[in-house]
């Protein structure tokens, strides 16, 4: 599972990255978490507002910091699909 965190590096984006790491650990799944800071990559992924999180290429949320429980539930749903 590939989880991407989009954000140029403001405090909200860092917070999101932390939460995603914690959520992966809590879910017990194996997933790679990538931080995407490049503008062109964001554009290609269709990210409009940051922080944004995508799981296996589909956007889970954008423009806000998600809660850990939310991210865990996304990871679980993505794992079921795969």
């Amino acid at each position: 599972m590939i989880i991407k965190v989009f954000g140029p590096g403001c405090s909200k984006c860092k917070e999101t990255e932390h939460i995603v790491h914690d959520a992966v650990e809590a879910s017990g799944m194996t997933a790679t978490v990538e931080k995407v800071t490049d503008l062109r990559d964001m554009m290609a992924a269709g990210v409009l507002s940051t922080p944004a999180v995508s799981i296996n290429g589909s956007l889970a949320c954008s423009g806000r910091v998600p809660s850990k429980e939310e991210v865990v539930s996304w990871i679980m749903t993505a794992a079921e699909k795969a």
Binding site: G7, K12, M42, M43, T50, G63
Partner: peptide, 12 residues
Amino acid sequence: FCSCSSVPLFLG
């Protein structure tokens, strides 16, 4: 929106 979003937003 967070001010650091203005660039991706503009592009989008």
